[in-house]
Design a protein around this nucleic acid. Structure first.
Lengths: 95, 95
DNA sequence: TTAATAGTTCAAAAAGCTTTGAACTATGTA
DNA sequence: TACATAGTTCAAAGCTTTTTGAACTATTAA
């Protein structure tokens, strides 16, 4: 049981990252674009403050749900689909 | 954006229900059994108090991740795989 | 060099989640 | 009837997550 709980740490982090309406809306926005885009542009589309955006992008990044590419002073993000595939679409295989 | 956030309410509830190590362990336990089993038996296997068990089963039930069948004084639960399939394995289709 | 823009960090406050034990309801058994 | 067992409810406490604005770093442009 203790081992099982520890093995679940990564899954818990993924599901926590997904368990928020703003972050889900960010994911939808990035999904329909399907190319990398600056954090600031996404934040403006969500009508959130830049501090709040910074907080949510950090959580998505630490969960491995987005990948990041710094270009000049902008931080471009895109979905990391392999993480979604591993924890969501292949959920039963990784349980 | 407001509409999108509201549309995401059900997904947020599912992901919150999954975003906890005890509930993930309960799901694993129910998955390997693949037949219904009393809450109390699951709770004992997890080494949690009955109050804590009651709390976690309520969250799983409200999210639609388990279905419940009361038999005598026992409450039997099993996974509702259609909910997992809808929100996890078919994640991109429902985004 | 100065000013502007993109994003981060910090601490405090607000909001939300989880655990706890005691008291409870409902059902089954002697 | 009396007792035991399965599970729920409640409020308080403790803990975690999210928002806020001010101050910060880094980069770009005039």
């Amino acid at each position: 049981m203790v081992n099982q709980l520890q093995k679940n740490d990564a899954s818990v982090q993924i599901f926590k990252a997904l368990a928020d309406p703003i972050r889900l809306a960010i994911i939808q926005y990035l999904n329909q674009l399907d190319h990398e885009v600056a954090c600031g542009e996404v934040g403006r589309a969500m009508h959130i403050s830049k501090t709040s955006g910074s907080y949510h992008f950090k959580i998505l990044q630490e969960a491995g749900l987005i990948s990041v590419n710094k270009v000049g002073r902008e931080k471009n993000v895109r979905l990391d689909r392999s993480t979604f595939d591993h924890y969501l679409t292949h959920f039963w295989q990784n349980l």
